[in-house]
Design a binder for these strands. Structure first.
Lengths: 198, 198
DNA sequence: GTCTATAAAAGGATAGAC
DNA sequence: GTCTATCCTTTTATAGAC
């Protein structure tokens, strides 16, 4: 039984998020976990293998770590979308606007990723937008017929990532809020269009 | 006269964009410019000073490097917005979907930036959205009265950054195209709403 | 599986001659 | 302003005992 693996993944999730992948050293991971290099390299042959483990953990834990906490008190499918965005808002505020989406930041930091790494980043985005597509499906006729739900779900992710990026850069959550506000307006125009077809 | 400065800035703009800031070494810059370390450190006391020079160059060159090339054959103010986005599309395609916005990538890569660096990133975004606000102003009554043009311009940047991030991650420009398509739909709904007020 | 010690390389930066 | 040589630290990773 190797609690070492879990310790390292936990520490790496936090440090990659706080400092980025390149700026997190193996020594940082050892220091935080109180492990020795022998233990780490016994479980993860290279630093990149730690990254892969982290991305797999995010991918497999999206429901438990992200969706369920966001939706515990929300039933309306469209409000679920905005509840998810609100969870990001909370994280932005709690980090004094230094928050970055762990996946999005890695997606831009890693410039020549190993194919497995790139694939895992894509799977993370895919799972995120799939959850939104589920909400859009549940919204049924509140959206116009023929709405491209996949594209709209990707647009929700786009708004989140763009909003996070700007809030972080300007150190002002209002930039995130305005992105959500614009997305909200987009949804309201869609719901209006669904009621009164041309 | 120190052509060294320009050489280094040029090389750094390209390498920071291709590899990121942390993954670009001083040795990389020296190798590409065929300069010696003495010359570089004479002009830039530290690597971060190179970064600052790069960000100032982007900031001061947005018109010449980005806007004018995008708008040379476009007059309609709203089409200017989509012409700018189309320029990003071209860069995505030309780089086989590995393109990342130089500013956005740095904004997420640098986790504890020096205040001057963070400020320069913000000024770059600010200049970008200011250009969009100019288009929105020129569009006049095609947009509903009371439209928050600053917020809408930030949303255009949001769509670009989010679209770029996803196209890069999935290695598929269609993700960018769908983000632009959704933004286009948003603008069309706005123009429609401007014609037929409630 | 975990320990300590250390290799081997790359990184940012400096010194002092020219 | 530019040259060469080099210092010092950090970094990833390995070796071999336990």
């Amino acid at each position: 039984m190797s609690g070492a693996r879990e310790k390292i993944i936990q520490a790496a999730m936090e440090l990659f998020w706080l400092k980025g992948y390149n700026s997190t050293s193996i020594a940082d991971l050892l220091s935080r976990t109180q492990l020795n290099s022998g233990s780490l390299y016994h479980v993860f042959p290279s630093k990149q293998d730690v990254l892969i483990g982290v991305l797999e953990t995010y991918r497999d834990g999206i429901r438990e770590m992200l969706l369920e906490p966001s939706w515990s008190h929300v039933d309306d499918p469209i409000e679920k979308i905005f509840a998810l965005l609100n969870r990001y808002r909370t994280m932005i505020v709690e980090t004094d606007c230094t928050y970055g989406c762990p996946i999005g930041s890695l997606a831009l930091e890693l410039h020549e990723p190993d194919p497995r790494v790139r694939q895992l980043l894509a799977e993370n985005f895919q799972n995120w937008t799939a959850a939104i597509v589920g909400c859009l499906d549940a919204a049924g006729r509140r959206l116009p017929r023929g709405t491209d739900k996949q594209a709209l779900a990707q647009f929700v992710l786009t708004a989140m990532e763009g909003g996070v990026m700007q809030a972080r850069t300007h150190l002002d959550v209002a930039y995130f809020d305005r992105a959500v506000e614009q997305l909200r307006a987009h949804f309201e125009l869609l719901e209006k269009a669904a009621k009164a077809p041309a």
